[in-house]
Amino acid sequence: MEPLRVDSLCLQLPDGTTLCDGLSFVIEPGEVLVLMGPSGSGKSTILGWLTGTLDARIRASGEVWLGKIRLTNLPVEQRRLGLMLQQDYLFPHMTVGQNLKFGLRGGSKSDRHKLVEKSLANAGLSGMVNRDPSTLSGGQRARVSLLRSLLSQPNALLLDEPFSRLDVTLREQIREFTWKAAAELPTLLVTHDIADVPQHANKLDLTTGNYASNASHGTIIRSTIINKTES
């Protein structure tokens, strides 16, 4: 696995508001960087820029690299960045198994089926391969959604408040499942809930630009965040 690196990211909304100016960071494999801040601070916009799905009206400059591969101008489908959103977006016209097979790359029909069944079993979802996604609980749906992302063999994982829609009782269970599943990937988590942040994570507050690192090795963060409360 390779690190995910962002260099000198500047984002400006159509009304002229600057969300960030010269934001840079590196996320090593197995590390989690948490972007924190209230609604409107630009967390999801940064994620949109990383995946290449940013609204064309937003002005953006900067570079994103995955190891030695420059992702900045690659189409979304070639970036291989796994994405998990607030909603699980399980495709309603597919079964649970078909949703997962949709994420898989290559392999024979039987291999693909075995892999899907194994993944479901590992996630505590044995026997659900032919289930309609609408019959699953919120926690089960969240796990299937994450599995689908992981089965597409992403090189990094981007999480946009993936736990916010879950019941409070389910959140801890799904968080644990997520961090275990993403253990070897560079992971960027966007959230405004401090409880979502894993213990080993690096944190970046987009409102103040304050950076706190719990990483044992030095992840470089060099950023100028526009402090909205001051401006």
């Binding site: 799905t53 070639q78 960045l81």
Partner: peptide
């Protein structure tokens, strides 16, 4: 939910036309 389907499908590695057809 066309925008979400395109976003999810493309981040899973599918070309836009495939996202539409599938």
């Amino acid at each position: 939910n066309v925008d979400a389907a395109l976003r999810i499908g493309r981040t899973l590695g599918y070309a836009p036309a495939r996202c539409w057809s599938r």
